[in-house]
Design a protein around this nucleic acid. Structure first.
Lengths: 109, 109
DNA sequence: ATCATTAATCGTAATATTACAATAAAAATT
DNA sequence: AATTTTTATTGTAATATTACGATTAATGAT
């Protein structure tokens, strides 16, 4: 096995899980934070910033790109990545709804 | 390999990734949603609600418990699980900070 | 045209995750 | 005490993830 049974869950649950999975590795968190921090779109120097091999960073970028959270523009020999605003805001909405539960009425038995 | 290099990331980045990983499976999302929905703390009927084997649900509960997001009280033969308010609110803070970035000033090159 | 730079892809190894059957453990019921 | 109910644990198989070296592809510079 090792394969998630997505068919028994709602679309919402699967979507939350998909986005969360993307944030489920510190390198991808670091990449996204870096893209936010830099006013200009930072490209391949992510490899220098984060201490992982080029192939590994490229792999993480691919996952974020596949999800739609980021997009890359080719700029000469290098590639310029940035957050996809629309998708990011959609993700925010989904997560806010899920995480926003106030713990006010939670009391254990 | 197959092991995340946590040592090269900040505590914050690792913590975000850890919580996100917990949300990275629809079954765990469903479990948390169920715990929120039910006014009384729901116990083992999670197995009935979600269509996964008992051992699998137990495994997912264990992960959430290890993270501290939920806690379980033994009630006779069954166990009553519920959200740990304190940890949940801490997680909310961490995530809000990370996800809360407004996409206002993002423009790709 | 040749070379350098940058990023993607391929191949591979190590480890982690998901799922379930079978079994064990613990308390309630008969 | 034997049985039932509920949950945890163990063992195992299938698949996914993480990481990196090596190679390829694409563009820019010489």
């Amino acid at each position: 096995m090792g394969v998630t049974k997505t068919e028994i869950f709602t679309d919402q649950q699967n979507q939350i899980a998909l986005f969360a999975k993307a944030f489920g590795h510190p390198a991808r968190v670091a990449i996204l934070q870096h893209l936010f921090k830099s006013e200009t779109c930072i490209c391949g120097d992510l490899v220098g910033e984060i201490g992982l091999a080029q192939a590994t960073i490229s792999q993480h970028l691919k996952e974020l790109k596949n999800l739609g959270l980021i997009k890359g523009n080719v700029e000469g020999t290098s590639v310029c990545y940035c957050i996809d605003k629309k998708v990011w805001e959609n993700m925010q909405k989904i997560f806010t709804e899920f995480l926003g539960k106030s713990g006010a009425n939670i009391e254990c038995c």
